[in-house]
C-alpha cells in the first residue's frame, strides 16, 4: 500500500482554533463568565473538519483511533502515513520506537491567508485547593519550588518528553545545549509554538465547565459525520447544541458564583 498523507486521530478542536485565533466559545473562550456559548460550528473549524472529511473520502487521510485498530502514531511509525498530529510527548515515544526512516517534528500547520498565533498547553495539571492549613500550604509551596529547580526540570524533560515548566528552566536547558543533542533535537518546537505570539483573549486557553463532556459530544458527532450519518455542519451544530446544555447545567450548579 502506498503511504497516505495524514493519519488523523480525532482531536482537532482546541489547538486548531487557538492557533488560528478563532473562538471555541463566547466570553473569550469562557474566561469572562459562566454564561458562555459554544461557537465552533460557526468558525474556520467547520471548513477544516469538512476538509478532513474530504481528505478521507479522497484517500489522502486515514482515521486512526484505538477502535479503528491503531493510533495515528502507530500508523506513522509503520510508514503507513507520512504525517500525524500529536502531543510533543510523542517526540520521546517515537524516538524510543525508532522508525526505519528519517523524521522530524514541526509546529501544527495553519491555513493559507491566516495568521499564526501561539498554541496552548494541554494535559495534566497540579492543583492547590483552598481550605487547608498554613503548614499544608507551606509544604505545597515547597513542592512546587522543588519542581521548578533546574535539576527537577531537566529530569522531567528528559524522562517525559514534555516541556520545562518555567522560562528559567527552559533558558537553563538552552544554555546547557540540551536541545542540540539527540534525542532532544527540536523538542523545543513545542515552546516555540507556545510562545509564537503574546497570548491574546482567544489564545490564553479555554475555560469551560464540563469541558470533558463537551469534547465527548464533539467526538461522537464527528464520528457520525465521518461514517456518513450526517453532514459535518449538522454534526457540529448538534455538538454545539448539546455542549451548550452542559454549559447551562454547569452554570446552574454554580449559580451566583463567578471566576476569580
Amino acid at each position: 500500500m502506498q503511504p497516505r498523507l495524514f493519519a488523523v486521530d480525532l482531536g482537532h478542536l482546541e489547538q486548531f482554533s487557538v492557533v488560528h485565533n478563532v473562538p471555541v466559545a463566547s466570553n473569550n473562550n469562557g474566561y469572562d463568565g459562566l454564561d458562555s456559548q459554544l461557537l465552533f460550528n460557526t468558525t474556520l473549524h467547520v471548513q477544516h473538519m469538512e476538509n478532513i472529511q474530504r481528505w478521507i473520502t479522497d484517500g489522502y487521510a486515514l482515521v486512526r483511533t484505538p477502535a479503528a485498530g491503531k493510533q495515528a502514531r502507530d500508523s506513522f511509525i509503520e510508514g503507513e502515513c507520512a504525517i500525524f498530529f500529536s502531543s510533543i510527548a510523542d517526540h520521546n515515544t517515537i524516538h524510543k520506537l525508532t522508525p526505519a526512516f528519517a523524521w522530524d517534528v514541526q509546529m501544527i500547520p495553519t491555513y493559507e491567508g491566516t495568521e499564526r498565533h501561539n498554541t496552548v498547553v494541554g494535559g495534566a495539571s497540579l492543583w492547590v485547593l483552598s481550605g487547608k492549613t498554613d503548614e499544608e500550604y507551606k509544604a505545597a509551596a515547597a513542592y512546587l519550588a522543588f519542581l521548578a529547580t533546574p535539576e527537577s526540570e531537566e529530569f522531567w524533560v528528559s524522562n517525559t518528553g514534555y516541556i520545562p515548566v518555567t522560562k528559567t528552566g527552559y533558558d537553563a536547558l538552552l544554555a546547557k545545549g540540551f536541545y542540540t543533542k539527540q534525542p532532544y533535537v527540536n523538542r523545543d518546537i513545542a515552546l516555540k509554538s507556545l510562545t509564537y505570539t503574546e497570548p491574546g483573549p482567544l489564545t490564553r486557553g479555554i475555560r469551560l465547565g464540563s469541558f470533558i463532556q463537551i469534547r465527548a459530544e464533539w467526538l461522537a458527532e464527528v464520528e457520525a459525520a465521518l461514517a456518513g450519518q450526517k453532514t459535518m455542519q449538522e454534526a457540529l451544530d448538534t455538538a454545539v447544541a448539546r455542549g451548550n446544555d452542559h454549559l447551562a447545567r454547569f452554570a446552574k450548579t454554580y449559580a451566583g458564583k463567578s471566576f476569580p
Binding site: A89, N92, T93
Partner: peptide
C-alpha cells in the same frame, strides 16, 4: 491511561 495522563508509552 490516555485520558488521564494524555498518553505516554
Amino acid at each position: 491511561d490516555q485520558l488521564t495522563t494524555g498518553g505516554g508509552t
